[in-house]
Simulated assay, not measured.
Amino acid sequence: MSSSWFLAGQEGFEVSLKYEQSVKVPSADDLGANEVLVKMHSASLNYRELIIARGGITGPITVPVVPGCDGAGVVEAVGSAVKDFRVEDRVVTYFAPRLVDTSGDDALAGIADILSTLGQGTDGTLRSKGVFPETALVHAPKSLGWLPAATLACTWTTAWNSLFGIKGKEAGPGAWVLIQGTGGVSIATLQLAAAVGATVVATTSTDDKAARLTAMGATHTVNYRSNPDNWAQEARNLTPDKRGFDIVVDIAGNETPAQSLAAARVDGVGPCQSKKYEIRLDMMLRAFPVGV
């Protein structure tokens, strides 16, 4: 048996999140050919879980659905056709399992794939045991314990793709990267960019957060609350010859893309997490947004 949280609707966690203590789990003999039974050891939450529960921009869910796309656990049983995993393997979940089925291992998830992701169209990680398709799992890094391993799938792969996902535009020594705030993706991007020798500028709202960002590797910080209408130019002025940023990682939604593009250099890239863009032509001539 398993215990599990599940969403019965999209009216927010307060209304729609339910808990069931005795959920039947298939035996090894009852697993589908490509299914894997995993005992979950840890799970992590992303802001997307709140958005999904509220019926936000990610779209409808398959009711009922177990929320959560990030988790880590150990394999307890495998289906007859499973090739990559064995009992007792340590695994972490993968965000978009059906994408691998339809497009292959090297495919990049797009907006059309969101409805089938873990925690939305496929049962996710907020359960003590669960059956996952084989394509929803990858081997966990041996160097990480359960808790850090459970944070990898959504936040850290988003950060990684933002910095290294475009061939010829990868972050490295000499690159200037602009991040926004202190959320999960921004902090992951900061740490990865600093680790490869890029110069990172971070926007933030308080002096305390600025100090923490500096301690984690940010070279400069810009307070967007003290300069709400022109923080992009303030940040751009920090770059060599005020040329702008090689990479601007926009995570703040519809309010920030215009300033993010204003901060980018010619031929710079702007990975974004935004529902829509309202971009002026003069800004389009300066940089091209790249969805992640």
Rank of each mutant, 00 (worst) to 15 (best):
Thr204Met: 06
Gly73Asp: 02
Glu278Asp: 14
Leu137Ala: 05
Lys276Leu: 11
Ser103Pro: 00
Gly121Asn: 11
Pro26Lys: 03
Arg265Ser: 13
Lys129His: 15
Pro60Phe: 12
Gly172Trp: 11
Asn161Trp: 09
Lys169Cys: 13
Val290Glu: 11
Tyr47Gln: 08
Ala72Phe: 01
Thr182Gly: 03
Thr206Met: 09
Met283Glu: 14
Ala43Pro: 01
Gly56Gln: 02
Ser128Ala: 13
Val138Glu: 09
Trp146Lys: 00
Thr155Trp: 00
Met1Phe: 09
Val25Ile: 15
Trp231Met: 05
Ser226Gly: 06
Ile179Glu: 03
Thr102Lys: 15
Ala202Gln: 08
Ile251Pro: 00
Arg98Pro: 00
Glu234Lys: 14
Thr214Ala: 12
Gly291Trp: 11
Asn237Leu: 13
Asp89Ser: 01
Ser274Cys: 13
Ser22His: 15
Asp208Ala: 15
Thr125His: 06
Arg212Asp: 12
Leu147Asp: 14
Pro97His: 09
Gly104Trp: 08
Glu35Phe: 06
Ala140Gly: 00
Gly73Ser: 10
Arg54Asp: 15
Met216Pro: 01
Pro240Cys: 07
Ser116Gln: 11
His41Gly: 12
Thr203Ser: 13
Arg265Cys: 13
Gly253Trp: 01
Leu152Phe: 04
Asp101Val: 07
Pro257Asn: 07
Gln191Leu: 11
Ala8Ile: 01
Leu178Trp: 04
Gly79Leu: 03
Leu99Met: 15
Ile51Lys: 01
Pro257His: 06
Gly55Cys: 03
Asn161Tyr: 14
Ala96Phe: 14
Val23Asp: 10
Glu20Lys: 12
Val269Asp: 02
Leu261Ser: 03
Pro289Arg: 07
Phe164Gln: 07
Glu49Pro: 02
Thr221Ser: 09
Ala194Asn: 11
Arg225Leu: 14
Leu17Arg: 08
Ala215Gly: 10
Ala198Val: 07
Asp105Val: 12
Leu137Cys: 05
Gly79Cys: 08
Thr214Ser: 13
Thr214Met: 10
Ile57His: 12
Gly71Ile: 07
Leu50Lys: 10
Ile187Met: 14
Ile279Glu: 02
Ile251Trp: 00
Gly291Ile: 11
Gly56Met: 03
Phe85Ala: 01
Ala202Lys: 04
Thr102Trp: 14
Arg127Gln: 15
Gly184Leu: 01
Val290Trp: 11
Thr214Gln: 13
Thr182Tyr: 02
Val248His: 04
Ala149Ile: 02
Gly59Asn: 07
Gly110Phe: 09
Leu192Gln: 10
Ala153Asn: 14
Asp70Pro: 10
Arg212His: 11
Ile247Pro: 01
Arg98Tyr: 14
Arg90Ser: 03
Gly71Leu: 05
